[in-house]
Amino acid sequence: MTATKGRRRVRKRLSIPLLLSAALLVYTTLSPSPTLIKESVAPMVPARVPESYATQVAVDDFDVHGVRQGSTEALNLRRFPGEGIVELDEPKRHNYSTDGEWVANAREGQLREETEVLVLNGDVRLQYDVENVQFLTERMIINMPKQAARSTASVRIWQGDNETVADQIYINLRAQVASLSGAVRTVYVPQS
């Protein structure tokens, strides 16, 4: 009897490793094959290269009678004629009227060549020199032929100690008229 018990113990010891080996064999044959990791899954896009590049640029624009309407300055300029745009770093736009000058500056801008629309982005500041009025927003669109500016982003307006915040603004730069829309809040400090 002792010899039979010893054989059963050996069979039990051998059966566990055999079961594990069989399970591993079945798993590896039935599991999906591993996929290779590719370096680039996204399609390659050709680099965006400007046709022309300039630094410290200033361009004046005139009406049909030769009167200077404004000027645009930039630290750097990149022109992409296929896209019809000019990208500007640290743009500064001057709009002249008979009564004064509007100056707008921002971190970056984009000039749409066909429509002559200048889109300013990032810390946009528009200032009217005669009244010392300042407008601050994150995005502003200036239509140069129409001498108009608008912002659909929140805008803050300062004049002296007075402050107004509006959801949107439209400014006729030629007539010096600003129209505020959306929620408008004003803090007025009377002069003593």
Rank of each mutant, 00 (worst) to 15 (best):
R125P: 01
T186W: 00
R48L: 14
R79M: 09
V45S: 13
L30G: 01
E39W: 09
S52F: 13
V67N: 00
N76G: 04
D99G: 07
I169V: 10
V57D: 00
V45W: 11
R11M: 15
P190D: 13
A149S: 06
Q147V: 13
E39L: 11
N121S: 09
N76F: 12
S181E: 03
S154H: 11
T164A: 02
V67C: 03
A74N: 03
E131V: 02
G160M: 02
S151P: 04
Y27E: 10
T152V: 13
N95G: 14
L20V: 03
A58S: 11
S151N: 01
D99P: 13
M140W: 12
A23D: 05
Q168G: 01
V57Q: 02
K12R: 13
L36H: 08
L180N: 03
D167G: 10
L77K: 08
T137I: 08
H65R: 10
V165W: 05
G109N: 05
T98C: 08
V26Y: 12
P17R: 03
V49I: 12
V187S: 04
N143C: 11
T4H: 08
M144H: 07
A42F: 08
T115K: 10
K92T: 07
N143E: 10
M1A: 08
P43C: 05
D60L: 03
P190Y: 06
Y188P: 04
S192I: 00
M140C: 12
T186S: 02
D123G: 11
N172T: 05
R93L: 13
P34N: 07
V165G: 10
L30I: 11
V41A: 06
L180C: 14
G122S: 09
Q110C: 15
R78K: 11
G66F: 07
V64S: 10
Y27C: 15
V187M: 00
Q69L: 06
S40A: 14
E108V: 11
Y188L: 12
K92I: 12
P81W: 13
G82D: 12
D167E: 14
D89F: 03
V45F: 12
R11K: 06
L173N: 00
K5Y: 05
Q191R: 06
E116Y: 01
A23S: 04
A183Q: 08
A153S: 14
D167R: 02
V130M: 12
G70W: 03
G70I: 01
E108F: 15
V184A: 14
P91T: 00
W102I: 00
A153L: 07
D99H: 09
Q168E: 08
E131A: 10
S15E: 02
V133N: 01
R11S: 11
R185V: 15
T55F: 14
V26Q: 08
L120S: 09
S154T: 13
T72Y: 07
T186E: 00
A148L: 09
G160W: 04
S181V: 04
N95P: 05
L14N: 11
L25N: 12
R156H: 07
K12G: 02
N121A: 02
K146S: 10
L75Q: 15
L118Y: 01
A175I: 01
Q168S: 14
R8C: 14
A22H: 04
G100Q: 01
I157R: 05
D89K: 06
E113A: 02
W102Y: 00
T72K: 01
S71T: 12
D129L: 07
L19P: 06
A42D: 06
D129M: 07
A149L: 15
P81H: 05
